[in-house]
């Protein structure tokens, strides 16, 4: 049998608990968009967006994984003029006059420090011209040149895999398709050139 005093204390405890819980609830909902992001842990099914077309044909599955999933990169071999290279470079001297000028005259090499410029065979394999070669001697397919560039530019490679460097091709939804290193950078002169802007800005305050 409860006395009225016990009842009073019981009621006060329940009320106090309610106030604390309500306060806690209100507090936990604060934090705005950052909290919303932290709470979102289930992956979004990118394939559920119906309007996304199938992946472009000139892409290939990357040999690395990003955030636990696979992704595709743009191909390179079909964009290199006169691929395969072994058509001319087949372990015999090329017996055409001015062959270097005719075939590779458009290449200006400006890669690496001015003190230590890279040479052709830093990246190209001397024995098999169809592939690239790393410092360790691993042969790298031209479609997967990020394996080669990532030797020195490892920070950029890490960012590129995650999505902070480089860019996706046209669609944020659907299967992830990203630009390859050589899609944006000329591998022989990778720095972007100085040029005039495409258009001009209006002043901040008119």
């Amino acid at each position: 049998m409860k006395t009225p005093k016990q009842k009073k204390y019981g009621l006060a405890t329940v009320l106090g608990l309610m106030i604390i819980l309500t306060g806690w609830n209100a507090f936990s909902e604060k934090g705005g968009v950052v909290q919303t992001i932290k709470n979102a842990t289930s992956t979004f099914d990118n394939g559920s967006v119906e309007s996304v077309p199938p992946v472009p044909e000139d892409t290939v599955l990357a040999q690395v994984r990003y955030q636990g999933g696979t992704f595709r990169v743009e191909t390179r071999k079909d964009k290199v003029k006169r691929f395969q290279c072994s058509q001319c470079h087949n372990n015999q001297p090329v017996a055409i006059a001015n062959a270097v000028e005719t075939a590779h005259g458009d290449i200006t090499l400006n890669h690496g420090d001015k003190v230590k410029q890279l040479a052709c065979f830093t990246c190209h394999d001397k024995d098999n011209r169809d592939v690239l070669i790393t410092e360790k001697g691993t042969k790298v397919d031209m479609d997967h040149s990020y394996q080669l560039c990532g030797q020195c530019h490892f920070r950029q490679k890490k960012d590129w895999i995650g999505g902070a460097h480089g860019k996706r091709v046209s669609w944020w939804a659907g299967e992830r398709v990203v630009k390859n290193c050589a899609s944006c950078h000329d591998p022989h002169a990778p720095r972007f050139e100085k040029r005039w802007p495409k258009t001009y800005s209006r002043p901040f305050t008119e």
Binding site: T36, I37, A40, F44, Q67, G163, K167, R168, K179
Partner: peptide, 18 residues
Amino acid sequence: GARIFGNLLDPKSEIRFV
């Protein structure tokens, strides 16, 4: 490639990586 766009609620998206 200075502009990254994506779904904030998807932990696998690029913007979440950033």
